[in-house]
């Protein structure tokens, strides 16, 4: 083969190999690390998979936060004013975590239907509502006028 063509071929092969490796790594890593968002109603309806890392979000139900007296374990319920899901978490909660506030938790659903979180996010601003939570609240509110009333009464 002509030396210049050979060189071009090498470069092209290099590029293709690089792109191939990148694409392979990406799809592999993507498949492992996509975390889908579910709201409490979907989880209660059994739409969310068990033992797969997902995100769940909603409002922290008033009066539901229970601390373990011995460790950093904490239990609370996350609600969209339709259904609620029990959440278990061990660790430090963010400063803006409070009852009646919106949160997003990352973790897995266990066999008993409670959500074991390894991360709880309440973002940097007290006026902030995680967009997923805002939308799912809106959805439940739009769909069922009853829920709308519930949302209002809950946000007294």
């Amino acid at each position: 083969m002509h030396p210049i063509r050979k060189k071009r071929l090498t470069i092209v092969l290099f590029l293709l190999a690089g792109i191939g490796v990148a694409v392979g790594l990406t799809t592999y890593a993507l498949r492992q690390n996509i975390n889908l968002f579910y709201d409490p109603s979907q989880i209660a309806a059994g739409e969310a998979p068990h033992d797969v890392r997902i995100r769940a979000g909603g409002m922290v139900e008033k009066g539901s936060v229970v601390r373990d007296p011995e460790s950093l374990k904490v239990r609370f319920r996350v609600t969209d004013f339709q259904s609620s899901v029990p959440v278990e978490y061990t660790g430090i909660l963010p400063d803006l975590f409070a009852e009646g506030q919106g949160v997003v938790a990352m973790g897995k659903l266990d066999a008993g239907g409670s959500f074991v979180a390894d991360q709880v996010l309440a973002k940097h601003d007290e006026n902030y509502m995680p967009p997923e939570v805002a939308e799912s609240l809106k959805k439940t509110a739009d769909g069922q006028p009853v829920a709308n009333g519930a949302a209002q009464s809950a946000s007294y």
């Binding site: 990406t26 592999y28 890593a29 993507l30 690390n33 975390n35 968002f37």
Partner: peptide, 12 residues
């Protein structure tokens, strides 16, 4: 709605 976790970035 989904998010891509830190492991994706770390492994790639």
């Amino acid at each position: 709605k989904l998010s891509i976790g830190e492991p994706f970035f770390n492994t790639t």
